[in-house]
Computed example of a mutant assay.
Amino acid sequence: MNLLKRYVVPAACAMTLLALAACSSHNDERRTPVPLTEFKPVLNVQQVWKASVGKAGRYLFSPVAVGDAVYAAGENGSVGKFDAQTGKEIWKVKLKDDLSAGVGSDGNLTAVGGLKGQVYVLDNNGKLLWQATAPGEIISPPLVGNGLVIVRTIDGQIVAFNAQTAEQKWLYRNRAVPLNLRVSAGMTFAGDQAVLAGFPGGGFAAINLQTGDAFWETPVSYPKGVTEVERINDVSGPPTLVGATTCAVTFQGQLGCFDANSGRAVWEKPFSSVSGIAQDDTTVVGADDWSVVHAYSVANGAQTWSSDKLKNRDLSVPVLLGHAVVMGDYQGYVHFLSLDDGSFVSRVKTDGSPIVAAPVLAGNTLVVQTKDGDLFGLRPQQ
Rank of each mutant, 00 (worst) to 15 (best):
F271A: 09
L310W: 00
D280A: 09
D314K: 15
V356H: 15
S291L: 08
E268V: 15
T365L: 08
A358T: 12
V367G: 02
S353R: 15
S316I: 13
G286N: 10
K311R: 14
D314I: 13
L339Y: 02
S291A: 11
K269P: 00
D340C: 05
V356L: 14
V360I: 04
S353G: 05
T304P: 07
G332N: 01
V368M: 10
V367H: 06
A302T: 14
S346A: 15
T350M: 04
A295S: 07
A278Q: 00
A287M: 06
D280Q: 11
P270F: 11
T304N: 06
A357K: 03
T365V: 14
H294S: 05
N300K: 12
S272T: 14
Q331D: 10
D280S: 05
G328Y: 03
V298M: 04
S346V: 15
V292S: 00
T282W: 00
D329Q: 01
N312K: 10
P318R: 04
F344C: 02
L315H: 05
K269H: 11
L337G: 07
A324I: 14
T282M: 02
M327P: 02
V293H: 03
D289L: 12
S346I: 15
H294F: 04
Y330K: 13
P270H: 10
S262M: 04
W305L: 00
G342I: 10
D280N: 13
K269S: 13
G276H: 08
G322M: 06
V292W: 00
A362M: 06
D288Y: 01
A295C: 00
G276V: 08
V284I: 11
A324H: 12
T350L: 13
V298C: 04
A358K: 14
H323T: 12
R313C: 02
V345W: 10
G263Q: 08
E268G: 10
V345K: 13
D341T: 03
G342Q: 09
V325D: 02
S307A: 09
M327V: 15
